[in-house]
Design a protein around this nucleic acid. Structure first.
Length: 511
RNA sequence: CGGGGCGUAGCUUAGCUUGGUAGAGCGCCUGGUUUGGGACCAGGAGGUCGGAGGUUCAAAUCCUCUCGCCCCGACCA
């Protein structure tokens, strides 16, 4: 049966029909990334990588502004380093790629095999995270309290051999930044952990248009080896939670493991207090699931690789050159405008393909503003402006100069609109729950065979025990996403045991 | 690693039960007609049917082994 035109969506299935499949289709339709021949490893295509570059640039600026510097440490970590921190080994040993040889030889059948004579005396692991190898350097660098703090970040790739990969959300190799700092006192290190969490929260809100809960992880969700893990948690459109960034206070655990010692102001030998923190290409997956719709990606203007695309309409060869020249001129004028404190980014799509196809490609890629410019517009001195936060057919004909003058304001309005929409959605699906029955009902789908979108964030009391968490996880696959830092103290009863509790925590199903 | 499923053109796949040597749609290329719009018509390129072995006059199809991928669980930025 053919669908009426207005019901047709660019992405099938829709979010409501099959959210995970919709996600995959958006990644493909927006030309962000594709699976490679290597299991769990993706190829990030230019449009996807452009988003990552913008994320890098913005975050990097904020790290630098708070005194951090970039450096780079090895991809390979000696196996023995990982073993230095007990919790850390337990957390990562199961998912490590291991390098055992340094040479290949012919296997006599036209193929290659690792040369038996070229076995490494100590295997190397491909970093799943760099605490241990960076710690080894810090141990050499730090002698005195005067050498502290060390505030370093690195942009790198890491490998975690996960069981079930999913593009951007959980890939075997992923790109991230990992900050590693060492401090003289616990208090200073805790301050660093908070500072970074604040940067992550600000970045999520102001750049990604994502409202997030900030808070601390419960013991069972903590980073392996950390004393305290802070996080930002976002809600996406299937109402699940996604951990979008973490900032860990590592106490002296890794300093002991790596031997980061210094002589204090009092002349005593002490271990440094360290932190580590990171966000990854998972943020791109988060962005997609939070903002995209049934016509494809919707990009917050502040993070879009191109904020405006100009689509020249060239129906007749005789007007083609004039239209292209006008498009170039419009691009120059727009690029002179400033939005969010930076030059507006503009792209002209001159490809020789059908106009409709071209328009839909840009809708699916989520470019914030599409501008059509054709011969009739030239005569009238106007352009046709379409916004990604409005319907695909909706366009406004505005005088050229007016559009140039208003472009920045439109982009900023769209950015604010996306945040408002995401916040309203998050708030509408965040509920206080006080009884076990309500809690279980909230997280149980009506249709168990093919669960519909359900649940959300539940703010509920908890007795603080690991047993309750595990019970709820086993029953419902629901976990504590964070113990929110902003939540006021409030007397209540644990959702499961009825024991007294001082504070509500955030529960949700998660990615 | 347990339990299911699947590997046929760039993508989605038909054919396999009942062996006779490969078909479609989309995409791609060329030409034409269109053109404020995901258009239409015509022609064309592209496949050692995941790999190896076996049965047979003959294998995408039957048998054995092997590799890879997807889904469901435990784990995770």
């Amino acid at each position: 049966m053919s669908q009426p035109q207005q019901d047709k969506t660019a992405i099938t299935p829709t979010r409501a029909q099959d959210f995970p499949e919709w996600y995959q289709q958006v990644v493909r339709a927006a030309d962000l990334a594709e699976n490679s021949d290597v299991r769990g490893c993706m190829v990030i295509k230019p449009w996807g990588y452009g988003i990552w570059e913008n994320m890098q640039r913005s975050l990097d600026g904020m790290f630098k502004a708070t005194g951090h510097k970039n450096a780079y440490f090895p991809l390979f970590i000696p196996l023995s380093y990982l073993a230095k921190e007990a919790q850390h080994v337990e957390g990562f040993a199961k998912e490590c790629a291991v390098v055992t040889h340094h040479r290949l030889e012919s296997d006599g059948q036209g193929g290659l095999r690792p040369a038996p004579g070229a076995q490494l005396t100590e295997p190397l692991i491909v970093r799943p995270t760099s605490e241990t190898i960076i710690g080894a350097s810090y141990a050499k660098w730090v002698q005195s309290w005067r050498d502290l703090p060390i505030l370093i970040n690195q942009w790198a790739n890491v490998v975690r051999w996960e069981m079930r990969p999913r593009v951007f959300l959980r890939t075997t190799e992923f790109l991230w930044q990992e900050g590693h700092t060492a401090h003289e006192t616990a208090q200073e290190a805790l301050g660093e952990t908070d500072l970074i969490l604040g940067i992550y929260e600000k970045f999520a809100r102001e750049w990604l248009a994502l409202p997030v809960f900030t808070g601390e992880k419960s013991e069972s969700e903590r980073f392996p080896g950390a004393v305290k893990t802070l996080c930002i948690e976002a809600m996406v459109q299937d109402r699940k939670a996604i951990q979008a960034g973490t900032s860990h206070f590592l106490g002296q655990n890794f300093a002991h493991a790596s031997g980061i010692k210094f002589q204090s102001r009092e002349g005593r030998e002490e271990h440094a207090w360290t932190t580590s923190w990171g966000v990854s290409t998972r943020l791109i997956g988060t962005l997609i699931m939070a903002h995209a719709d049934d016509d494809g990606l919707v990009l917050p203007p502040r993070i879009a690789p191109s904020q405006i695309v100009i689509i020249p309409v060239t129906p007749k060869p005789e007007t083609r050159d004039a239209v292209l020249a006008a498009a170039e001129q419009l691009a120059v004028e727009l690029r002179a405008q400033t939005a969010f404190g930076e030059k507006i980014s503009v792209e002209i799509d001159k490809r020789d393909i059908g106009g409709g196809t071209k328009t839909w490609e840009w809708i699916k890629k989520g470019v914030p503003i599409r501008v059509e410019l054709g011969p009739r517009d030239l005569e009238k001195g106007s352009v046709a402006v379409a916004r990604r936060d409005r319907g695909p057919k909706e366009k406004a004909f505005v005088p050229n100069a007016d559009f140039v003058a208003k472009a920045a304001a439109i982009l900023e309005e769209m950015q604010a609109g996306l945040l408002a929409k995401a916040t309203a959605y998050r708030d509408a699906n965040t509920v206080k729950i006080d009884t076990k029955e309500d809690f279980y009902a909230f997280f149980t789908a009506q249709n168990s065979g093919k669960p519909e979108i359900h649940g959300g964030f539940a703010l509920a009391h908890w007795n603080g025990s690991r047993e309750v968490e595990e019970r709820i996880k086993d029953d419902l696959k629901v976990t504590i996403r964070c113990i929110p830092s902003a939540a006021p103290e409030e007397d209540g009863k644990c959702i499961l045991t009825g024991e007294p509790s001082k504070r509500r925590v955030v529960w949700a199903k998660s990615y």
